[in-house]
Design a protein around this nucleic acid. Structure first.
Lengths: 367, 367
DNA sequence: CATAGAAACATGTACATACAAGTTGAGCGG
DNA sequence: CCGCTCAACTTGTATGTACATGTTTCTATG
């Protein structure tokens, strides 16, 4: 069935917008006059004026009485005293994020950019609102940490809009697979492998792993964990592999850890916990202490990210490093390059950091 | 001479806006119909529609075909999944600001708010752009650190606009005197007094003071410095009181310090530097070392804010404390109270923190 | 060739008319 | 009393006409 026709003024609007987007008309080009358009599209001058009025209000056109109607310069290209970079991360002042932000800020401010930070709380709805908010003003670029990157990308339209508006952006820590943008990522599979390998090399054979699998980092750490088992021909114990989500991070892993430790014969208990990050490691350290056991004497513990938490406890954590400040600074550098050299670069560009094992007190050799 | 008349559609617009602002029409009230308005104001329905169209585009009205035209709910009152708090500080990840932000973020996130951060680089133009940017979206509240608070408030219109839109806000570290809002402030005069008093009690009689006087913090620290001299009946040495601006912070104090130390007989040199903040203290520590002198043996040094810098150097700084995280958290609490209990409170509310003297290695008794 | 004025062109303001589409309320019939 | 239909009211779309105001171009004259 024939689709309902749009009003003429909206059809005209779409046509004109296509002229702008395809480059047929460029910034500061003069539009055909109202009368010319009216004639060409067989409509009244007032209908044309209605369309022009909307396009003007929305910033696409500007009109000068007696002279003509012209295409606006896109907001992001307009001369501004200061260009603004948006940074979108899970948190702002928690965990490793202050370090990432500091690295980025130092580089960006040195080049005269200003920052706009927003946090998503690792929640897709908040990601959408943060993107919406960020994109209400002229941004020169965006540094984005994907939210629950293993759960698809319901906010895809916002990212496509960034592409459409030619706003450079890149992703850190992970990248939505369907986005063709640079990314700065830790090789989490390698990290997962190194974590498990370290413990295996210390004689551990019964490793429990706790992975937050709503983001790809957790998924990849788990893959590395599994690969290390295969590599060293150690049987993987599925009952010792715990998946959890952001919402469960304070509940499921803790209970699972307690269950593993309390109700098993010593020879059936895990000898080490591989934790998705330092935050979880600290949490499970509490669980171990709760039942009167000790780290590392009774069970070894290893985390990821090498955050401040790793050295904040009495038992200093063995952890896989994260570049943090360096990653923030590198991200800023790549984004500045994209902005200032107008380089449209895709997912082939970016950086992958190899995590390094930082051995401290929380892992020991099986006696 | 009679002023040129506004077009009818703009006169109508102003009239309608006055209905909204005076409360004659409230959110969700129905406007008189287009025909009624046309009749009442002796103009055509199309002219009325032009006005209505603009008001709709700008968010003041919403129209429903066949039903009527209604007054919009102001953006800040609209139901939102997440309310956003803006935080505007000089920097984001430098100096004591991460601590302030962390304190605020913890409290705000616990109550379900999301943060939007922007930095001003202590520059009035950037302050204006940050405010402009912040105010383009529905904000539930703002935490603002005034920029160069001793240099007046050219961005007053933005603040008045916050008042006008009933957006709660408060100020930290300082408050523009003309703004009637809560503030959380360190008693900098007390701090300046304590800094000088400490040195005087250690036997120092020739104190040099370096104060960034483009903000009120510096002005007040200087006042305290002067008051301590009067209190202890120590002559103030004007040639030892250095004023500088944000832009000069890396140049004038350093040169002045060198000049004081290099070209004077020992009995005419200052015995202590009172520095505007730890950042400057560290900088002048370098200056002292540059000419082969040592802190505290040859000259004592005291800073403000008790930042990470205070303990980062080999010579740990004596410093006046700043509440940092506590201030951030307190600010968040007051702002939440303003938002959720719709309390319109002014400058009589707030908090003043007494700085505490943290004695470390950089100040010693005159031998 | 330069200048001034008029004509042409372009947008801005305003109104009138007509019809489409959606909502609401009144009246009538079952 | 309820349901249906129609009229009235309201906004939405579209066109035509008229005049105001600003800019550009062309023509005529010196």
């Amino acid at each position: 069935m024939k689709e309902k026709q749009l009003p003429k003024y909206q059809q005209l609007k779409q046509e004109i917008l296509s002229w702008l987007h395809t480059g047929r008309l460029k910034p500061n080009d003069q539009m055909p006059s109202e009368n010319e358009i009216a004639e060409q599209f067989l409509m009244s001058r007032q209908t044309v004026r209605q369309t022009f009025g909307e396009l003007e209000k929305e910033g696409w056109l500007y009109r000068m009485q007696g002279k003509g109607t012209f295409v606006s310069t896109p907001q992001t290209q307009k001369s501004r005293d200061v260009q603004t970079i948006g940074i979108l991360t899970s948190y702002i002042s928690d965990y490793i994020f202050p370090h990432i932000v500091r690295g980025a800020e130092a580089t960006l401010r040195a080049r005269g950019y200003r920052l706009l930070l927003s946090s998503t709380d690792n929640d897709k709805a908040k990601e959408r609102e943060s993107l919406d908010m960020m994109m209400r003003q002229p941004l020169s670029g965006l540094i984005i940490e994907p939210t629950k990157s293993a759960e698809g990308n319901p906010n895809l339209s916002y990212y496509l809009s960034l592409d459409y508006q030619h706003i450079p952006y890149l992703m850190i820590n992970e990248r939505y697979p369907e986005m063709n943008c640079p990314s700065l990522i830790v090789d989490d599979e390698d990290g997962g492998f190194k974590a498990a390998a370290h413990l295996i090399q210390l004689g551990h054979r019964r490793l429990a792993g706790f992975f937050k699998t709503d983001d790809l980092q957790g998924v990849n750490r788990l893959k590395g964990f599994i690969r290390a088992h295969h590599h060293y021909q150690i049987p993987l114990l599925p009952e010792f592999v715990i998946h959890y989500t952001t919402e469960e991070k304070r509940t499921k892993p803790y209970r699972s850890a307690l269950a593993m430790l309390e109700h098993s014969a010593a020879e059936e208990r895990p000898t080490a916990f591989v934790c998705y990050n330092d935050e979880l490691a600290i949490h499970l350290l509490e669980a171990v202490r709760t039942i009167g056991m000790q780290v590392p004497q009774d069970i070894s513990l290893i985390g990821f990210d090498d955050s401040n938490l790793a050295t904040a406890t009495e038992v200093k954590l063995t952890s896989l490093s994260h570049p943090k400040t360096e990653l923030g600074s590198d991200a800023a550098g790549i984004l500045i390059d994209m902005i200032e050299n107008k380089r449209v670069i895709g997912s082939e560009t970016g950086k992958v950091y190899k995590p390094e094992l930082v051995i401290r007190e929380s892992t020991i050799r099986i006696p």
